[in-house]
Design a protein around this nucleic acid. Structure first.
Lengths: 211, 211
DNA sequence: CTTCTGAAACCTACGTCGTAGATTTCCCTG
DNA sequence: CAGGGAAATCTACGACGTAGGTTTCAGAAG
């Protein structure tokens, strides 16, 4: 009963494969991910996967696409204030990242061209434009916001669970401020940093408007 | 003449290995990087490398350490205005990233605990503290700045050389603003986004001071 | 001058990986 | 009932990371 006979259907398709791949990365991490292990999880011959997804690189694309698609709930509401849209998007993104910490490096590294990702961007900059923000600042906002989100979440999620203590004599200021960084990775820290980035966008907008 | 006799020195050490590894990643990319190819470049047996660096993971650590160390020129000047320090650090970081675009994902993914990296951080937050910025904002600044730098540079450097055109009917606002994103990856765009982040830090500081 | 010792390098071998190419089986259409 | 395409498996190849053993040499100890 170990293996299927040769021509019978195994019910494989892109969706099922991507879901199993996400589960495998969540469980074992990116290093241990591979076509053969994925085939084992699916109870299938490794080469069967290639009839639906053309190679390992495409598999990684499918993983990031699946994880992004899982995130797009609740963006269909009426257009709010652009800052509310940005905050909501950022928090949804963070939630997704914490659900799949070992998948996240894939998202931060690869360009995101999936419909779900583009729709979220369109929603955000449409709200900014409707609010009357200068076009150049609106055009720059996605890179500023998602640049920060990707870099910050990458640092938080791939940081070692026990952060090394700092040498107080070599780096006195860092040592003095260390207590204020004790909530590393917390929602409170995230809110502070997100506020900083959004403040920057707002500030640049008002400066350019009055100039 | 193909191979060395067995006990003779090949002049290997951690420095030479790391330099060759950086050159190999620069040339062939992270996917093609491996112990055997590195040994070929060095004219050496693969296992010889293990007497100086204990495994592939440690090799990647050595690569990122070498690239960071190459960056620390010019931080020994007198303490300037904190914004000048931040801008200088950011520009140095960007220069390094553009010199080694295929190494950069390594830096953005791994926590940076090398002395060179810590010294740059200490320099930055010392300048902020001396300028009288609130401690919490100073403590948050490194994550805000390097979060942005890592995420943004990752997007710029690993983006495909030909960016896909956007669907004007599905995403009208993005299509309308596309001309303003034409300088993707340029120094001008970088300066605008860096200004945004630094404005956010400054703005938060003044708001907290007057509050 | 001889002997010992440790380091540096190489050689062999094992299990794993991604995937190209050929083969088998099923299902659907004519 | 014939045949063709789709889905799955089987086989095989080259490359990878690295554990364990072997060889050689330089310098210290006697």
């Amino acid at each position: 009963m170990t293996r299927r006979t040769r021509g019978t259907s195994a019910g494989l398709d892109r969706i099922r494969i991507a879901a199993a791949a996400v589960a495998l990365v969540d469980r074992d991490g990116l290093d241990r991910f591979g076509v053969r292990r994925l085939a084992d999880d699916l109870g299938v011959d490794p080469m069967s996967i290639y009839h639906h997804i053309k190679g390992k690189a495409a598999l990684l694309d499918a993983i990031s696409e699946a994880v992004i698609a899982e995130m797009d709930t609740g963006t269909k509401e009426a257009p709010h204030d652009w800052e509310q849209v940005a905050r909501q998007t950022a928090h949804n993104y963070r939630k997704m990242a914490y659900r799949h910490p070992r998948v996240f490096p894939l998202l931060a590294t690869r360009p995101q061209n999936s419909p779900a990702a583009l729709a979220a961007l369109e929603h955000l900059i449409a709200a900014m434009r409707q609010a009357g923000l200068p076009d150049q600042i609106t055009a720059d906002a996605p890179m500023a916001l998602f640049g920060f989100l990707n870099g910050y979440l990458l640092a938080v999620l791939s940081g070692s669970p026990d952060r090394p203590a700092i040498d107080a004599t070599a780096y006195p200021t860092m040592a003095a401020l260390a207590p204020l960084q004790a909530d590393f990775g917390s929602a409170a820290e995230f809110d502070r940093l997100l506020d900083t980035v959004l403040s920057g966008i707002r500030d640049r907008a008002t400066r350019q408007a009055t100039h």
